[in-house]
Nucleic acid binder design. Structure first.
Lengths: 344, 344
DNA sequence: TTGTACGCGTTATCAT
DNA sequence: ATGATAACGCGTACAA
């Protein structure tokens, strides 16, 4: 039951360990026949190199890590797919690492860099606000993708970012609702303590109302419940249900994520409201399931494919010293489907 | 920019490396004051131990890996959450590893064991059918959870498993539909090449029809398209759309996963059919979103929480030598919601 | 209680 | 083209 090592292979083959190492790592200076023989022996003995030892010794891992905040976020999974393609294309390895909501992603990144000799890091989601100091220790190029921005003070030439302008896109959606005659628009938004995208999207909402001459009313601002999972279906459902029970007049609900919107849609239906005839419903993100829900969901779609591709491009440019850090803002797309209608 | 190591810490503190090591790893034989001092220096210098070096040296990692087939499977994410709780509870570390659809999970497991000195492995999903030989090399207890069974020939006392009886549960659903007067029941199922749960669920369908005196008709068996992602919304939508265009009479559609069912529901709606009045629709798995979809989805719910807890229990029992390998079959629950109705 | 020295499995730098 | 050997950073006997 002994674990077999490179030494065993060398002994069996009657060669030195360095020769085996050369065979494994596709080094040029090796006799093709020797290599073939070694590879055969490796197969026969089911030898698997120890990655810890490799990482320990190696400088150069040709790996980039993707740190995803939270699990089961269907918005990210599409991005991950694309990132994986792009990373493989450059013949890099992708290390996918989930980070719990209560974990510090920068700390995780720091560990990972030491362990895996990464060349770059992609942060997907999360709010790196409190981590400036730690971020400075990250001596590896990193890029924030679809992530709450860093505070203004943080030097913008030490990292890159790719995202939509949450305020602007949120504005777009609410403005659309206003232009379609809606005046009493509720927003299903982040908790008051949120300092990230949730806050920005709320600001867009407020600004759009003001620009359309509509008063912002506290009673129409519906923060998520903190005792339920953030951005979850259940949260959207419960908050909407409680809101509807108050019977506050309202003709449209804008949820700052599609999942919240779907939860809200169910609450509306359960309470006997027809979407969109009685109340219009809009989401944000543009996740796939929004197309399949009934009625299909009007949303503000983030161009995830392009964003993922751009994320990879920027990171590789920096790794290859082809460019400096940059900050790329994408436009979202207002996708009008069946869950909203004009108000006459 | 030099990476700081345990030696540096030792030097700064004026102690030996072993003392630092003891401080880090909470060893008993150490002066509390020395320890405190060392920990302070570690914080000040942002020292992060190198995991590769640790894993290389250590025998005993107190870690268990969860290998998940595919990404973005909302059915698994609930299980993962529970597994994480259970594993943390035992003060083990959980290593979450996604495995691509075209990757061999056993190969990934083999590598991971070498790299991380795992104590146990949980396979979530996937079909380990072709990997008997490799599985034998896995000298670490493993358990298959929610996974297509291994072939009969494989010795059942070398591994554990937790799952529902897919054939039986599928039968339950189809039998329910039959008992409610449905005779023309289409099934949205796996590709013909599938040898895993897809096959079993199809068998349950056939058996239920026969037992209810209904003929199995090929034209009502709708395999997923191979050019689209397996079990995806889009696959359910497209296959159903194409089926409906053929105008084959049918009063119910049973999809072997909830996601397929939701896709199918949209195709029905687009084609002008009312669910459940015109056609009843049922899914399988019991994912959360099924509750929020309109009409809410009748489904065969797998008891994911209990299954995850049992998975962890069994694995830890084996690790602790408290028990031998075992195979646990859970009952699913028929959850009747709004997407099905009797046929008179 | 603490420090020294060795080895974990691999890659890289030398010679040869 | 190949082999011996020194690191890589850490944990742990063993000695002190």
């Amino acid at each position: 039951m002994e674990e077999i090592t490179i030494k065993d292979i060398a002994r069996i083959c009657g060669v030195g360990v360095s020769t085996v190492s050369r065979a494994i790592n596709n080094h040029p200076d090796i006799n093709p026949e020797t290599k073939e023989m070694i590879m055969r022996v490796i197969k026969e003995n089911n030898y698997v190199p120890n990655n810890s030892a490799r990482n320990l010794k190696r400088q150069d891992a040709k790996a980039i890590a993707v740190l995803v905040k939270g699990i089961n976020n269907s918005f990210f999974s599409q991005m991950i797919k694309v990132l994986e393609e792009e990373i493989k294309e450059k013949s890099y390895a992708m290390v996918l690492q989930h980070v719990d909501y209560d974990e510090d992603e920068v700390e995780v990144a720091l560990k990972l860099v030491k362990e895996k000799r990464l060349r770059g890091i992609i942060f997907l989601g999360g709010y790196l606000v409190h981590s400036e100091e730690k971020l400075a220790q990250l001596h590896v190029p990193f890029i924030l993708s679809t992530t709450g921005m860093l505070p203004k003070g943080f030097s913008r030439n030490t990292y890159s970012s790719v995202a939509v302008d949450d305020t602007k896109e949120s504005y777009k959606m609410v403005d659309y609702l206003c232009k379609n005659g809606h005046k009493d628009i509720a927003i299903l938004c982040a908790r008051k303590t949120d300092a990230s995208i949730g806050k920005l999207r709320l600001e867009g909402y407020k600004k759009a109302l003001k620009d359309n001459g509509i008063e912002v009313r506290e009673e129409l601002i519906l923060p998520m419940r903190s005792d339920l999972e953030d951005y979850s279906l259940e949260n959207g459902y419960m908050v909407t249900k409680e809101f509807l029970e108050k019977q506050i007049p309202c003709t449209a609900i804008f949820a700052i994520s599609d999942m919240l919107a779907i939860g809200a849609g169910k609450a509306l239906s359960d309470a006997g409201y027809k979407v969109p005839e009685d109340i219009s419903l809009a989401g944000f993100d543009g996740v796939e399931i929004g197309k399949y829900v009934i009625p299909s969901l009007t949303t503000l779609k983030q161009p995830v494919d392009s964003m993922a591709r751009e994320t990879a491009r920027i990171l590789f440019d920096i790794i290859g010293k082809k460019a400096k850090h940059q900050h790329c803002v994408f436009d979202g797309e207002l996708v009008v489907r069946d869950s909203t209608m004009p108000r006459t």
